[in-house]
């Protein structure tokens, strides 16, 4: 092909290429915009999406309303600042108090921020300190910071087979934590206990067995069911 003919052709094609280039850019941004809208639309009706469970406020220490429910995502920070994923509007919490991360089949891993501490199921968690427990929360675990007491409720399907290691009720009372049962002495137990019944699995609390009571033939449930643990 002659040079001249080619130059004319190439010069004419300039407009074509620029037009196509612009069209491609416009299509790209339209696509981006449409995805954005669709994502918003889809998740608008599912406010629970991306959450693994909730923290229920058992004791608020004045500023928290008892019975309030705070949703918990898979991973993030917890504190009183609004930038946190789990915002606890209480003075006992530092702006960023804890980092949490849910590990499948293991539970919600709690790590304290620098200079902060908390109690998970009665065990002290400090910033990289000698943590007496491994800081994993499961369905029914209690988190205590100062006067605030929060109970974790995991959504069904995210359950964990293991149950929390809990101190005996007397010790729990000492910390001012609510006890699972009223008045029935319970042998202190250590170690991991497998959930025996559906109910235990569901509530996260063990049931006092007939055999374990001294002379008490009644079977008492270890605590209230999911819906009404507010005291």
């Amino acid at each position: 092909m002659s040079d001249e003919l080619y130059s004319v052709l190439a010069l004419g094609m300039r407009y074509w290429f620029i037009a196509l280039g612009l069209l491609i850019v416009i299509q790209t941004f339209l696509w981006l915009y449409r995805d954005h809208r669709e994502k918003h639309r889809r998740l608008k009706n599912l406010p629970d999406a991306g959450m693994i469970g909730e923290f229920v406020v058992l004791a608020g220490g004045g500023t928290l309303e008892e019975g309030a429910v705070i949703p918990v995502p898979w991973e993030g920070m917890m504190g009183s600042s609004r930038m946190c994923d789990v915002v606890v509007p209480s003075g006992d919490f530092a702006p960023v108090h804890l980092y949490f991360s849910f590990v499948r089949n293991k539970g919600l891993q709690i790590e304290a921020a620098r200079g902060r501490s908390c109690y998970v199921d009665g065990a002290l968690q400090e910033y990289r300190g000698k943590n007496t427990a491994d800081g994993k929360m499961v369905h029914g675990s209690i988190l205590q910071v100062g006067d605030c007491v929060l109970r974790l409720r995991l959504f069904a399907g995210l359950d964990v087979e293991r149950r929390a290691k809990r101190k005996p009720d007397d010790d729990l009372k000492e910390y001012g934590m609510p006890v699972a049962s009223q008045g029935v002495p319970r042998p202190g137990y250590d170690g991991w206990v497998d959930a025996q019944t559906e109910e235990e699995r569901f509530t996260g609390m063990y049931l006092v067995k007939d055999e374990e009571q001294d002379g008490n033939t009644k079977e008492t449930t270890g605590g209230s069911r999911e819906k009404d643990e507010n005291e």
């Binding site: 620029i18 280039g21 612009l22 850019v25 981006l32």
Partner: peptide, 18 residues
């Protein structure tokens, strides 16, 4: 291709970043 197309290429990179 010209500056207009050059800006289009830049916008493609912007879309990648977005």
């Amino acid at each position: 291709f010209g500056l207009i197309f050059g800006v289009c290429v830049l916008l493609i990179y912007v879309a990648v970043i977005w």
